[in-house]
Structures are given as structure tokens and as C-alpha cells.
């Protein structure tokens, strides 16, 4: 399926930061890493649904603001000793525009 949705210009997302996209059943956090790649994951930590969009981004990971779980942005999986996984969505940058693919 090539159902890419246009989100926003890349510069609207701070580097090492994120924006939240609201969809029907919840929110998606769209992250921009220091190498200007974008990643989209469900904005809910696999631990206790903490808002991952509010965490600190480093490399291709984000640290959840509630209890410090570290989540891999590429796979949505918790790293280190913790176990769990959140949904990921395909995301890309084209001509300075960010797109994501729902489902």
C-alpha cells in the first residue's frame, strides 16, 4: 500500500524532538533524529502508556518520560533489560516534507 499521508515540513519538527499527530484511535509520535531521519511510533510506551513524544531522543532511541524505558524508534521495541513493543508506522522525508503511512 502506498497510502502516504503528508504531515508537515521537516523543519516543523525540532531536531532531536518530536510532534504529535492525532489519529482516530490515539496519537502517533513523529520523531526527528539528529541525522534528519524521521520515525513514527504510537505515542504510548509499552510499559504503562507513557507519552513517548515527550521523551528525550538520542540516536535512534527515545527515553520515556515516565519511568525511563528506552524505546528503539526503528522497531518500537524496548531496549536493555525491559521487554515490550509499541506499534511503528512507516515514515519518510521527501522534498522537505514528512510523510507517514497509517496501518
Amino acid at each position: 500500500m502506498s497510502d502516504w499521508k503528508k504531515i508537515a515540513p521537516l523543519e516543523d519538527i525540532p531536531r532531536l524532538g518530536s510532534r504529535v499527530v492525532e489519529i482516530e484511535d490515539g496519537s502517533i509520535a513523529v520523531f526527528r533524529t539528529s541525522d534528519d531521519q524521521v520515525f513514527a511510533v504510537r505515542d504510548a510506551c509499552p510499559h504503562k502508556n507513557g507519552p513517548l513524544s515527550q521523551g528525550i531522543v538520542a540516536g535512534h532511541t527515545v527515553t520515556c518520560p515516565l519511568h525511563n524505558w528506552k524505546i528503539d524508534l526503528e522497531s518500537g521495541e524496548a531496549l536493555g533489560p525491559d521487554e515490550g513493543c509499541t506499534n511503528t508506522f512507516a515514515a519518510k522525508v521527501e522534498d522537505g516534507m514528512v510523510y507517514i503511512q497509517l496501518s
Partner: peptide, 11 residues
């Protein structure tokens, strides 16, 4: 402001 306003899906 970007901190507080969610993005919309435009198309």
C-alpha cells in the same frame, strides 16, 4: 508553539 499544538494529517 510546536510543543503544544498537535499536527494534522493534511492529505
Amino acid at each position: 508553539a510546536h510543543e503544544f499544538v498537535p499536527l494534522k494529517i493534511s492529505a
